[in-house]
Design a protein around this nucleic acid. Structure first.
Lengths: 204, 204
DNA sequence: GCGTACCGATGACATTTGTCATCGGCATCC
DNA sequence: GGATGCCGATGACAAATGTCATCGGTACGC
């Protein structure tokens, strides 16, 4: 028999992380060598334990799963990464794949299934949840330019244009233009709905 | 030895539910008698299996944890309910307690701890996570009147005032007045940030 | 070189929104 | 009965926002 797959588990919800570690530990070809509750911690644990596969939650304090995956890819090329997420937004999948993530699954799968997918990923293959993939395809690519997305992101919390302009170091008029064009591209009536839509689709 | 505590587990994320069931099952004074992935399903399972304690996720399809708890209180008064949540918003805690929920914990606790809390709740006591309790207290009561809250809720997705007015069957001018007064009470610069704040605090 | 697209900005204009004062109706509490 | 507070509305005014045309600059591909 070959050596077991060394797994790193990163999720800020202790309840889930612990439970998952226990369940995956039952599989005799998997061993959880490290756990982390935040993005930076995940990176540190990965450096220290050099896992074969890193299972990362998408939403974590510090740095989200995709950011961690990006760093891991540079630092530990031999470590495969996969993302587990509660609410999968289309754009995240695309970002994740661009970051070299090899597995992308929702938390609605069973632990049994997750174990299989970890093996798949470890073997060098890829796995993307079919439903999330379909969503991503139907959502399509972001029609927004870089600045449009940037400005829209600053608009998500409802800040007035003056504040957005200051934070983006742009003229208020320019900000209004970008927001207007972004809203028009997204078919939204104003920047607030536009920001919400873009966020839903993972475009910001 | 007394009979084990019969537990119902409701969470839409299979990964977590399954893992949790496995971990709690290790405690020899707890037994998971039913699992559910949605609000209505949780109710049905509770009717069928009559658990001692129902552990409900706050966010589930169909009906959220608090709604399920309310129904359970009416139908199965002997069944204690508790809520587990990822992101605990102050207002939810208040709603939950009003619904007769006896335990309220974030998902950052360990399974070990959760098991203890289940026992505490089963024994007839209450348990509220100290940090969530502190948040709830510091957030205080909603300063909003009924209509202000109602209109603010319709504003969360960034709809223009005309649409809000139509959906609330109010004059646009009235809507503007309510939104203005709500925003002022919340210290927000505009209705969008006001809506976000109110939602964060669980006031809508 | 030329066309195209993005960036950053300005000005003008219409529309939407925020703010305030004010009104009548209704319920509640003292 | 009077005070208070919420409800629903209107009008008026100022400020913020959305929309459009236009400009110069830069980068990229053909």
């Amino acid at each position: 028999m070959t050596a077991p797959v060394r797994v790193l588990l990163a999720d800020d919800e202790h309840l889930i992380r612990g439970a998952l570690a226990a369940l995956l530990g039952l599989e005799d070809d998997l061993v959880v060598v490290a756990e982390a509750a935040s993005g930076p911690e995940a990176l540190a644990m990965a450096r220290a334990h050099r896992p074969d596969v890193a299972v990362l939650d998408l939403q974590m304090p510090g740095a989200d799963g995709v950011k961690v995956a990006t760093s891991l890819r540079a630092e530990l090329p031999g470590c495969r990464t996969m993302i587990v997420t509660g609410h999968g937004r289309p754009g995240h999948l695309k970002r994740a794949l661009a970051a070299g993530v090899r597995g992308f699954v929702p938390k609605t799968v069973s632990a049994q299934r997750l174990a299989e997918i970890i093996r798949t990923v470890h073997a060098g293959h890829r796995y993307v949840d079919p439903e999330l993939a379909a969503d991503a395809i139907s959502a399509g690519d972001s029609p927004l330019t870089a600045r449009e997305a940037e400005v829209l992101e600053l608009a998500v919390d409802g800040a007035p244009i003056a504040e957005i302009a200051e934070r983006a170091s742009l003229s208020p008029g320019t900000v209004r233009n970008y927001l207007s064009s972004a809203a028009s591209k997204l078919g939204a009536e104003n920047r607030h709905t536009a920001a919400r839509l873009a966020r839903e689709r993972g475009w910001v």
